[in-house]
């Protein structure tokens, strides 16, 4: 079986800014295998957010091909993209992006609601996911009653709940202190060891060091793509 999860070929994303065309991504060729743990790095304006949006099927490329799990995403409409996001991708955001009015359980089960799973199964799976991130005793708390680290763990539980092919984390520790960041990165490492594919967008070197492959972007182009030495 093909072990490639994501394949991008001469992928471009342009923005029209007035009469100027900004090349946010310029001819990207990139592929990821299953169970890879990758950090995408670069200074702001390097195109890493645009790349994340395209990998996460929130946006489509201006040209080139993007295949996720063997499906070509390039020509999909909004609802098809929504379905792909729902099934294939778990997002973890820098700003957490939980719904403040819902408790942890309802936040975590949200993707399953849109997947059409019935209430009982949703409850079981959401509880399970919260227990996996160590929040089994906080299920009925609202995000405002939790610490930043706990909130991000709820968000990770939400990302895990639909057993996605890919976990996409955008600066997941950007709003957390150092020790909490370490806890969160430990969870990601465990998830990686459990067989998940994780792509991390970050500009912090020490966070990137948790991963095993580093892709550096600059001005919409890949500057370097290196693998961590295999540790014995």
């Amino acid at each position: 079986m093909d072990n490639t999860l994501i394949r991008m070929e001469s992928l471009c994303r342009f923005y029209e800014m007035g009469d100027q065309t900004v090349k946010a991504l310029d001819n990207i060729d990139l592929s990821f295998n299953r169970n890879e743990y990758v950090a995408i790095m670069g200074p702001s304006g390097s195109g890493k957010s645009t790349l994340m949006n395209i990998i996460g099927c929130l946006d489509t490329p201006s040209s080139g091909t993007y295949e996720l799990n063997g499906q070509s995403v390039s020509g999909m409409d909004d609802d098809e993209l929504a379905r792909i996001r729902n099934r294939e991708i778990g997002f973890v955001f820098q700003t957490f992006n939980l719904l403040p009015r819902l408790d942890c359980l309802r936040n975590v089960e949200l993707p399953l609601i849109y997947a059409g799973i019935d209430a009982e199964e949703r409850f079981d799976r959401a509880l399970d996911a919260l227990e996996r991130v160590g929040l089994g005793d906080r299920v009925n708390h609202k995000p405002s009653e939790l610490s930043g680290g706990q909130i991000q763990r709820v968000a990770i539980a939400r990302a895990l709940i639909n057993n996605p092919s890919l976990i996409l984390a955008d600066e997941p520790t950007g709003n957390l202190d150092t020790s909490t960041s370490r806890d969160i990165m430990t969870i990601f490492s465990e998830l990686s060891e459990a067989g998940n594919t994780i792509i991390l967008i970050t500009h912090e070197e020490d966070i990137a060091q948790y991963t095993r492959r580093f892709i550096r972007l600059r001005d919409g182009k890949i500057e370097s793509d290196t693998h961590a030495p295999i540790l014995e």
């Binding site: 996460g56 929130l58 909004d78 609802d79 929504a82 379905r83 996001r85 729902n86 099934r87 997002f91 992006n97 939980l98 719904l99 949200l110 993707p111 849109y114 997947a115 939400r158 639909n162």
Partner: peptide, 16 residues
Amino acid sequence: TKEIGVRKSVGAPRKS
């Protein structure tokens, strides 16, 4: 808007 963004990111189709 943010809530709508979150819902869409986890797979809410336009219809819902």
